[in-house]
Design a binder for these strands. Structure first.
Lengths: 106, 106
DNA sequence: TTGACATGATACCATATGGTATCTCATAAA
DNA sequence: TTTATGAGATACCATATGGTATCATGTCAA
């Protein structure tokens, strides 16, 4: 089995999966709903969802015969933790991001 | 050609490449020096360095017959930009990171 | 000049990855 | 109950990926 951090980085390495994450950020979706957003089969989308789930980036809730896919924000934590190793290199960038969030909170 | 963001995410998807990035964070190194840190051939390390270079995460400076590999902190920017899309989801985590950096600066 | 050394490049191999097609199962609806 | 629908699983395919082996090239040193 792979480490959590490896699974998380791997999950985000694919553009389709990053797009799925962004779509789910705006609301939960079933597999069929997600498939509508892409030019590929439901099976392919399902595979991507499995990878995202392995990476801890989404959770799946059974509801009848449907499966509700939900973004798991805590799944991003291991990646951010990894980035924190480079504090000394990207202070400026992070500060900009920090300020954007501060503004957001008001 | 791939987008910069895709090349950056792809570069970090491999554990060896993430380790190279961490090693280079502590100082520039030649290919031979980096190869000493891993149980693989110089050619394999060189391939990883090419991927990291494609991702904009390192720069290479020729110095005589040596090649100095250097971490390019700005290469992390596209990835952080992508994460900023999820501000509303990881405020807490980011705040912790922000505070750690604030402490660091003193 | 000549030999040693750091690197670049390429052919090749095994496995991983992203995709489709297809079959099965569970559940909703008629 | 019967039928339709959402999802899971698997076999299969083409290509990408991570690795080695090997040869070529440029540069430092004797």
């Amino acid at each position: 089995m792979q480490t959590q951090i490896q699974n998380a980085f791997r999950a985000l390495a694919d553009p389709t999966r990053r797009e799925i994450v962004q779509i789910l950020a705006s609301g939960d979706m079933t597999i069929a709903q997600l498939t509508d957003q892409f030019d590929m089969t439901r099976a392919a989308v399902k595979k991507h969802l499995n990878v995202l789930s392995d990476g801890g980036l989404i959770t799946v809730e059974a509801r009848g015969r449907e499966r509700i896919n939900r973004l798991e924000p805590n799944g991003l934590a291991p990646i951010l933790d990894w980035f924190s190793y480079f504090d000394q290199f990207w202070d400026d960038r992070l500060n900009n991001l920090k300020e954007a969030i501060e503004r957001n909170k008001k």
